[in-house]
Nucleic acid binder design. Structure first.
Length: 365
DNA sequence: AAAGCGGGGTA
DNA sequence: TACCCAGCTTT
């Protein structure tokens, strides 16, 4: 990039306008040859793009692919989504995380059917009004499906932008995202809004990597990237410091009765709410204490035949769990549901935190 | 503005 | 181990 001093704001504005024009030109020339072949890029059907964007929130492409395929196979239309049973919905989302995304998806589907007569809204503010859709997702759907000049500013785009511009702003600040979205309008003014959104994210995901050195030698924005010019990519983007996690101890009860195992539904609020789990207690206990507890629930346990531990790490909390496997001679405890391993597999949504204990059941327990 | 919300890949 | 990922909603 040529460094030129300008005597007035008009000169500077013209200079920046050329930079934005070049970004747009380079991205549009680059994208068709370098775009990954992803399942949700086969068409611009709003339902497909919407579903993919929701699944991709804070979630990697590779993790989403199979869920996306299965979900659409079972719920091929917005109408089908609007009517799906909640337990079935959670089963389709099982293991993907951030389960409110799925609940909001169904809620929004209902709004599309009722308030929009089944036609996905085509204006930014209308899209933004749907549950689970924020400024990023509304911008992505708007630009990809309807060619609206609505920049989609996600983690990829923030990384690419702050490096190209050597922008030291803290990207966790709301105002900074807003500023960058407005700056990008200068790129989107040249049209091809669909490709601009896709290509900015594609550069972030495949070239200007979130971890490790960027592949500047093959980057379409290399010639105008300040961080490349100064080899300063490691300084961008600037983010908020992370908070440390708290640790919680849990005792997990793996109760068998004949060919069934005990599960219960989590409460309707908080972490993993509404999903199923194996009954568990907060805290740390001895084998004897666990036996006494289960006995007090009139479950008549035989001996505990296996104990195993597992640590599950969430973003904000860590569960240190110890599971106790035992056979019971009764199954009368309130709040417990007894299901076969087949039902567990086909119908019950269990969060990944408990999956290792479930897997041990399947492998011959 | 800050906190809560999942799970997994990567260096 | 720490960081990040095609973020949104609630407090």
């Amino acid at each position: 990039m040529i460094e030129i001093k300008y005597k007035n704001a008009t000169g500077w504005n013209e200079f920046m306008q050329n930079v934005y024009k070049q970004i747009a030109d380079n991205l549009i020339a680059w994208y068709p040859e370098h775009a990954r072949d992803l399942p949700w890029r086969k068409d611009k059907e709003p339902y497909h793009v919407w579903l993919s964007e929701i699944m991709l929130q804070q979630t990697r492409v590779e993790a989403v692919k199979e869920y996306y395929r299965t979900f659409l196979q079972e719920l091929p239309t917005i109408e089908a989504l609007a009517e799906v049973d909640d337990d079935r919905l959670m089963k389709l989302w099982e293991g993907l995380g951030y389960y409110n995304r799925a609940r909001n998806l169904k809620k929004a589907a209902g709004e599309v059917v009722i308030e929009w007569q089944g036609n996905f809204p085509a204006e930014y503010d209308e899209i933004l009004s749907l549950p689970g859709i924020g400024e990023y997702t509304a911008g992505a759907i708007g630009s990809i499906c309807f060619d609206l000049p609505t920049p989609a500013v996600d983690g990829n785009v923030l990384r690419v932008y702050t490096r190209v511009m050597e922008d030291p702003s803290n990207i966790d600040k709301q105002a900074v995202k807003k500023k960058i979205r407005e700056e990008l309008l200068q790129v989107y003014r040249y049209g091809h809004c669909d490709m601009l959104t896709q290509s900015l994210m594609e550069v972030g995901a495949t070239i200007c990597l979130p971890n490790g050195a960027p592949k500047c030698e093959v980057c379409p924005l290399q010639e105008l990237c300040k961080a490349h010019k100064h080899d300063s990519w490691q300084q961008y983007p600037v983010r908020e410091a992370k908070k440390k996690r708290k640790v919680e101890e849990k005792a997990v009860l793996m109760l068998r009765y004949e060919d069934k195992v005990a599960i219960r539904k989590r409460t309707e609020k908080g972490l993993l709410h509404g999903l199923w789990e194996f009954p568990n207690l907060p805290g740390s206990y001895s084998t004897q204490e666990i036996l006494s507890y289960v006995t007090s629930k009139n479950l008549h346990p035989k001996e505990i035949w296996m104990e195993t531990t597992y640590t599950h790490i969430f973003s904000h909390v860590e569960w240190h769990m110890k599971a106790f496997y035992m056979e019971c001679m009764e199954q009368q405890a309130k709040d417990l549901r007894w299901v076969t391993l087949e039902e567990l597999k086909q119908e019950i949504a269990i969060p990944s935190a408990f999956a290792p204990f479930k897997d041990l059941l399947n492998s011959g327990a």
